[in-house]
Design a protein around this nucleic acid. Structure first.
Length: 645
RNA sequence: GACUUUGUAGCUCAGUAGGGUAGAGCAGCAGACUAGUAAUCUGUAGGUCGGCGGUUCAAUUCCGUCCUAAGUCUCCA
């Protein structure tokens, strides 16, 4: 006689074991129709699940994040069914839920085409109309293997053989289609309201490139057509904001065959780059970092000593000269330790913070390069803090505060925190790891913000926190990091004299706020859609004359703006004002100053923004004040002061 | 690195199912127009069709190979 407690705290008693669907029905027919799954004592189950004992039960619908996941997972099954109807020879493999959608990998004799996708989508619609029941069943392993062998589904057989344990396996059947699956799934194929197949691509069986290539079909599914439309619009918007496209359109940088993965920065792009570097330099100066600069080429033996050669030899560029092997530095840490090692350090010197805008080169696999986001030549806003174990936590906490402030200046308010802990292959004692992980954890807890634990993802030399920011499209971009390192200082012979005159090895904290300037600029371009806030805009204002008569006055304004430290120019070309406005608006210059006879006479400028807003006519001084304030605000969404002000 | 796709003028893109001097728009250049808030008009120059090799009487077009780029997988100190 189960007594069911619902999320609102109310109770319902049933005489016999009762299914989730029946509970939903007892609450109301609307809910019964909307029910996609249930949650029984916290566990997600099918609506057909029977509750026999007292339990807390919630009905899961598509208003629930879990409900949408179930919907997407089931949609992957729907797609697999459609594929096998159309292409009976296609074998199914795996079909999980991913962010915003799902995919399913098929083994098929040829790649699917966009036309195939359309046909699959159509068949999916038909199966939705058929409203087939989705039924769960349980099979013993041997029976399951026999069944899939019989069906010619070799991959499924392999999957089952790979599942540890001895317990029976669950299956889901809808019409003629049956799939091995943990579930849960929607009760019937009539529940799908909005889905779309978005892409097809090759993917390797079990992610290993020595295995057969499968056909992966990506799809997205949403509770409503409206949600789907919004999502597709977001994808379109993301494409428009692609930094590679905008980089070309705005004349910021380019890539060419002769230097794959290495950007050629153009005047405007480099101005942006320098603005960010100058800003970061001010930030570091104010936070007791000492800037250093270390060589590009370092004898290969140093990388052998540091252990990088053993692990990353293939990803390092090397140069031979005079019978000596050098590596182009792939990272700055070993060099920073060389600087640290000059002269005997005392515990009184710690923490010692070195910073370098370190230019690094890594031979990234050709297929992994992506615009500015993944390059072979990049500059890190790198820094290394040498400190004692006791100082780790306070250093990390201080760093985090700085990082948040910097991100806010760039217009990012939401930061995602992840703690990666000890991996299987690692150096150092467990006690040491315990302390370091605890220090990072404490620093995270002290922020009062939510954070995620990623077990086993730390570097081999120590745990780390990674900082990702959410851009305006909701995409998560990993930028900053702080990593505890017990290993490298010892390996490269760093030490300090402790209070008791003994020699001790310092802990090294690797840290970066932006990550790399290249990547961060890529993120910024996409976040702002190329319309950089005034403090970063390569050009902040342009002065436009209406006829030649105003040229003299415009030149004077240009000079005056430049003298005040603004980035401005005058466009005196013999073109119509509408033409010039269009051009500079497309170049996303924040302020367009129009000057005709009226303005010359009154000593004013007519101000228009790149957004098309008319700020009216104002005196030149008023405009300068306006621009100054705009610049001082940085990218902050509120009016609080920027970090370096 | 793997698979698929791709590379034509400064940019965006047509075109050539193996045949004569490869096209358009924009940008550029020359000239006219002296204008009031997202494209003024006229004229004009510009390409060994990604590189190398092969097949062919003939290759931008077909084949091979290399390089770049895109998507995806893998990787990311």
């Amino acid at each position: 006689m189960p007594n069911i407690t619902l999320p609102d705290g109310s109770n319902r008693s049933f005489v016999d074991p009762v299914s989730v669907a029946e509970i939903a029905q007892s609450i109301g027919p609307g809910l019964a129709k909307a029910a996609l799954a249930g949650r029984v004592d916290g566990e997600l189950v099918d609506t057909s699940y029977r509750v026999a004992d007292d339990a807390e039960v919630a009905i899961v619908t598509d208003r629930d994040a879990d409900g949408v996941e179930v919907l997407r997972h089931s949609c992957a099954h729907l797609m697999a069914q459609a594929v096998q109807r159309l292409y009976p020879k296609a074998q199914v493999t795996i079909g999980p839920v991913i962010e915003n959608g799902f995919f399913y990998d098929f083994a098929y004799e040829r790649p699917f085409t966009p036309e195939d996708l359309e046909a699959i989508e159509k068949t999916m619609e038909e199966i939705v109309k058929e409203d087939l029941n989705v039924e769960r069943s349980v099979l013993a392993r041997q029976d399951a293997i026999a069944m899939f062998k019989d069906m010619g589904e070799d991959y499924k057989v392999e999957i089952i053989k790979g599942i540890p344990g001895e317990e029976d396996l669950s299956f889901y059947r809808q019409g003629e289609f049956i799939d091995l699956c943990r579930g849960p799934h929607v009760p019937s194929t009539g529940k799908f309201k909005a889905f779309k197949l978005t892409a097809v691509a090759g993917a390797y069986w079990r992610g290993d490139s020595s295995n057969e290539m499968l056909q992966r079909v990506y799809g997205t599914a949403w509770p409503s057509r409206k949600d789907l439309k919004l999502y597709l619009q977001m994808l379109e918007e993301a494409e428009k904001r692609d930094h590679r496209k905008l980089g070309k359109q705005l004349g910021l940088f380019h890539f060419q065959e002769e230097a794959p993965g290495m950007a050629f920065w153009h005047p405007k792009g480099w101005t942006l780059y320098r603005s960010i570097q100058d800003y970061m330099k001010r930030v570091l100066d104010r936070n007791d970092y000492q800037e250093i600069h270390t060589p590009q080429l370092v004898d290969y033996s140093l990388w052998e000593k540091s252990g990088h050669a053993a692990k990353f030899a293939e990803e390092m560029f090397s140069v031979e000269s005079d019978n000596r092997m050098y590596a182009i530095k792939p990272m700055n840490c070993p060099c920073h330790i060389q600087v640290y090692n000059q002269g005997l350090k005392s515990y009184r010197d710690l923490p010692l913070r070195f910073a370098e805008f370190g230019s690094c080169h890594r031979y990234e696999p050709s297929g992994s390069m992506h615009g500015l986001m993944r390059v072979r030549s990049f500059v890190q806003d790198d820094g290394h803090i040498f400190c004692t174990e006791e100082q780790i936590q306070s250093e990390v906490a201080e760093f985090m505060e700085l990082l948040f402030a910097v991100y806010r200046d760039f217009g990012f308010d939401e930061v995602i925190l992840r703690l990666s802990t000890r991996p299987e292959k690692r150096v150092g004692s467990d006690a040491l790891w315990d302390d370091a992980e605890q220090a990072l954890k404490d620093a995270l807890i002290a922020t009062g913000l939510p954070w995620e634990l990623v077990p086993g993802e730390g570097a081999f030399y120590g745990p780390k926190i990674e900082y990702s920011l959410k851009d305006c499209m909701g995409r998560i971009q990993q930028c900053g990091t702080i990593q505890v390192d017990f290993f490298l200082p010892e390996r490269l012979g760093a030490h300090y004299v402790a209070e008791d005159s003994s020699r001790k090895t310092p802990v090294m904290l690797h840290r970066a706020i932006l990550g790399s300037f290249e990547r961060f600029i890529g993120v910024l371009i996409e976040h702002y859609g190329g319309a950089m806030p005034s403090w970063l805009a390569p050009q902040q204002a342009v002065i436009l004359n209406i006829t030649d008569k105003q040229s003299q006055y415009c030149r004077k304004l240009e000079e005056s703006l430049k003298n005040k430290g603004f980035r401005a120019s005058a466009d005196l070309r013999n073109e119509k004002i509408g033409f010039k406005i269009r051009e500079h608006t497309l170049q996303k210059i924040p302020y367009l100053l129009v000057v005709g006879d009226k303005e010359v006479e009154a000593g004013t400028v007519a101000v228009r923004t790149r957004g098309g807003e008319d700020l009216g006519t104002m005196t030149f001084d008023d405009f300068c004040n306006h621009l100054s304030q705009d610049v001082a605000r940085f990218g902050r969404s509120d009016d609080s002061l920027a970090t370096t002000n």
